[in-house]
Simulated assay, not measured.
Amino acid sequence: MKFSSRNGLKDLPSAVKCLENSIEACLTFFICPEEEWISLRTTNIIERLNKEFKRRTKPMEIVAGENACYTLLAFICLKMELHWKSNPIG
């Protein structure tokens, strides 16, 4: 279905209602400095982190308990954060 502003309210009322209900949450990134907007308005970083979790845990047949799994995921997060700090977006 094509969306145009002319028929949007009529054809996609649930989408419009959803946006109306969450417009403030959708625009909160404007509170941050403008140079950070590009990294805040996309889910690429989250998707990349989830992909890294899968890549690191998939070859493991077993993890030595829940705490060991959390420790591994925390290590992955810290490593990714260090990489992002040294290679900023934009």
Rank of each mutant, 00 (worst) to 15 (best):
L9G: 13
K85A: 12
I45Y: 09
E47R: 00
V16D: 01
K51S: 15
I45K: 09
N44W: 10
Y70K: 13
E47Y: 03
K2C: 12
T57N: 08
E36Q: 13
T57G: 05
A15V: 02
I31R: 02
A15K: 06
E24T: 10
M80H: 04
I62F: 06
S86G: 01
E61T: 00
M60E: 12
E35I: 04
C77A: 15
E66L: 13
P88M: 06
P33D: 15
C26L: 14
R6D: 14
T71K: 15
M80I: 11
R56L: 00
H83W: 12
N44K: 02
K10H: 06
A25S: 09
I23Q: 11
R6P: 03
G8E: 01
M60S: 04
A68F: 06
C77I: 15
I45R: 13
I45D: 14
I23P: 04
M80F: 07
L82W: 10
K79P: 06
R55E: 00
G65D: 09
L40T: 05
T28G: 05
P59E: 13
R6S: 13
E35F: 03
E24D: 11
S5C: 10
M60I: 11
A64H: 13
F53M: 12
A74Y: 13
R48C: 15
I76K: 04
G65C: 08
I62V: 03
F3L: 12
A25M: 04
K79F: 11
L72H: 03
I89S: 07
G8P: 14
C26T: 04
K79L: 12
L73R: 10
F30K: 07
I38P: 01
S86N: 12
I76M: 08
K10A: 01
I38T: 08
I46E: 03
K85F: 11
M80N: 09
I31S: 03
E47T: 05
P59R: 08
T57F: 01
M1Y: 13
K85L: 15
N44T: 03
L19I: 14
R6G: 03
T42I: 08
P59K: 05
V63Y: 00
L49P: 00
S86R: 13
I31L: 05
K85E: 14
L40P: 01
R48M: 09
I31H: 03
R56M: 07
M1A: 15
T43G: 01
E81F: 12
I89N: 04
F3T: 12
K85T: 11
K54Y: 07
K51Q: 14
A15F: 08
F30L: 15
Y70I: 04
T71R: 15
H83I: 04
A64F: 12
I38F: 07
E47C: 06
P33L: 02
I76E: 06
I76R: 05
M60L: 15
E66Q: 14
W37T: 07
T57A: 09
F53H: 08
L72V: 08
T42R: 11
A25T: 05
E81A: 12
S22I: 07
N44D: 08
